[in-house]
Amino acid sequence: MPLIKNDQLVDDPWYVLDDEGAASVSDDADIVVSYERWTKDRESLVSRNGRLGVKLSSDQPPSLIEDDLKHLDLVAVEFPRFTDGRGFSYARLLRERYGFTGEVRAVGHWFRDQMVFLQRCGIDAFEADEDRALVEWSEAQREISVVYQPAADDRSWVSRMRSSASRTARYQAAE
């Protein structure tokens, strides 16, 4: 499945390994495993050459892998239904609490109109199954230019902009 990453539609370089599947992939391949598989095969997974990602289901909070993040280049956060918003919190915790700088990927069910929220929470890769996805993504990003609250992105929020605007005004007045 293609990915939206950095505003581009790209081929997914990651290989998703199921729980039973023998590691028939090459030792250099980048693989994503379930949290269960990660806890079971931790030793052998860490000793591979390829990069490693773990997929969290919606009832697996990132605190479970807090100490493992140093081994990981990707965490996939699952949205089993678009109404299940736990992943929004998980993504923010990964970024803001645990300082994870690798890829945080949204997998499962979400829709175009949630993408900006996902991005603000720290998701930086979306599995996309249609050609239209990139167009939608770029439309969605342009819809709302103002944010009222800090999140895991680097956008400045309104109350901060207000106070810096008033500081600037005071500075100019002082001049």
Binding site: F82, T83, D84, G85, F88, S89, R92, Q114, V116, F117, L118, R120, C121, I144, V147, Y148, Q149, A151, V158, S159
Partner: peptide, 14 residues
């Protein structure tokens, strides 16, 4: 009101 408006984390609560 402002903080909660289009809050990215809390728009799909239980």
């Amino acid at each position: 009101r402002q903080w909660s408006t289009l809050h990215p984390e809390f728009s799909f609560l239980p």
